[in-house]
Design a protein around this nucleic acid. Structure first.
Length: 424
DNA sequence: TCTGGGGTCCTAGGACCC
DNA sequence: TCTGGGGTCCTAGGACCC
């Protein structure tokens, strides 16, 4: 691969910024956004970071801090964040012929052909702020890893004024020795520890270590990272999203799940949601895995992790097929003798293919279901609200709905959530 | 007592990312 | 008491085949 300038634009504390878009009172005060079920902090404003709120910190550990410092707390509002993300990406389209959406808050942009890359990046930042209302920062480099590294430096050091261009090797030689190896994209906790053991502490050390040693420590992945730090691209720019391979619906349950029925109800609910997701994406799955685990955090209870995988034949996105498969998995793995307190469960789907490419099966299933039934099911649930129609094994008791105590309005995707502007 | 070699495919688990 | 969810990629090892 030949190197050319790649930019990465990354939103600052994205979920917090998205909340601030619609509530200016949140500026300059500590704000955190919680994970599903209001379990832990997954986004923190700079003010919250200064107060020592850690990424992923459980919210029950933060009670005092929240009270003392008046931290504003939000449940996650994915409808809002997803929509803001889409709007930001639309702005990027005007600044590059080729954009790769990497995550909900990051895009890679092909920056080749722009003479003054820094000026172009500043224009982009201005446009996103003006048209969507959230701050972004830009890192530029000859490889994705160097662009990410530049972006990280721009994020942490205000002197770079939100843009850092790493195309110049001299600038890299100066700055890479100041970057911890653990801050490099692709180097996680385990690899950092191994690298420290051989005296590799900085991005520069990693760039300059032998290819052979890099491979011994972190397989081809670290080998590629080293090459990318040298300015040799190994990770391709992908402006067309590749066909997705898997899909998962997993949840922690608020209360421990002790009996068979409760676990079946949870997995029925996840399988139902997974089937909906498949249909939304026009896919069918060939493999279904159902799992349910005890909480690894509760050291004093008996632990058990259970997972069963089954083939879906024929491949399917039918709610009843997926629920039946999930229930089979629980049935075959249920421990009758001991009672455990399960805390998390989920459905993982693999071997996904577009409905049109579904391979024909030798024998048609005995019971043929019509896709129209699923269309009708989706339509009813869309019109009358989620879970208006459910499969019976999900249960009719109080449904375990997610804890979202502090959710902001769905400003951009639900008209009834807009604040009424009163005429005065 | 001796007990092949080389290939493919599949799966579980680890590591990492946001 | 309360600790997220959804992805990708890579490797080792077992099963199987000839």
């Amino acid at each position: 691969m030949k190197p050319y300038p790649i930019a990465i634009s990354d939103s600052a504390n994205f979920y917090v910024s998205a909340e601030r878009c619609f509530d200016p009172k949140l500026e300059n005060v500590p704000v955190i956004v919680l994970s599903n079920n209001d379990g832990c902090a997954v986004a923190r404003s700079n003010e919250a970071k200064i107060l020592g709120v850690k990424m992923g910190q459980p919210v029950h550990e933060l009670k005092d801090k929240i009270r003392e410092h008046g931290i504003r707390v939000f449940s996650s509002n994915y409808a809002l964040y997803g929509d803001i993300s889409r709007r930001v990406a639309e702005v990027y389209d005007a600044f590059s012929p080729s954009v790769e959406i990497y995550s909900i808050d990051e895009c890679f942009l092909d920056f080749s052909g722009f003479k003054d890359r820094e000026a172009h990046a500043h224009a982009l930042i201005k446009a996103v702020k003006l048209r969507v209302g959230i701050p972004v920062r830009v890192g530029i480099g000859p490889t994705k890893t160097l662009a990410k590294c530049a972006n990280d430096l721009a994020k942490k050091n205000p002197i770079f004024n939100s843009v850092l261009d790493f195309m110049e090797p001299g600038l890299r030689d100066w700055l890479l020795p100041r970057v911890s190896v653990s801050d490099i994209w692709g180097v996680g906790r385990a690899t950092t520890k191994k690298l420290h053991n051989v005296g590799v502490y900085t991005a520069c050390d990693l760039r300059d270590m032998s290819l052979k040693q890099a491979r011994a420590i972190g397989t081809v992945v670290l080998e590629r990272t080293k090459a990318e730090l040298m300015g040799e691209p190994c990770i391709a720019f992908e402006d067309v999203p590749p066909q997705r391979k898997g899909m998962a619906v997993t949840r922690s349950s608020g209360k421990p799940m002790k009996d068979y029925e409760t676990v079946v109800e949870a997995l029925t609910s996840h399988a139902t949601r997974a089937a909906e997701k498949l249909r939304q994406h026009g896919l069918v799955a060939g493999t279904l895995t159902a799992f349910y685990n005890t909480s690894p955090y509760r050291k004093n209870i008996q632990q058990r992790r259970t997972s069963r995988t089954t083939r879906l034949m024929p491949m399917s996105n039918d709610t009843f097929d997926l629920v039946a498969a999930a229930v089979r998995c629980v049935k075959s793995s249920w421990n009758e003798i001991h009672t455990y307190e399960y805390a998390r469960s989920g459905i993982i789907l693999d071997d996904l293919v577009p409905v049109a490419d579904r391979p024909a099966t030798l024998f048609d299933p005995i019971e043929k279901r019509s896709p129209e039934l699923m269309v009708a099911l989706d339509a009813v649930n869309k019109r009358f609200g989620k879970k208006s129609l459910v499969v019976a094994s999900e249960g009719f008791k109080r449904r375990a709905s997610m804890q979202t105590q502090f959710q902001s309005p769905k400003y951009t995707t639900r008209i009834s959530d807009l604040p009424i502007v009163s005429k005065t």
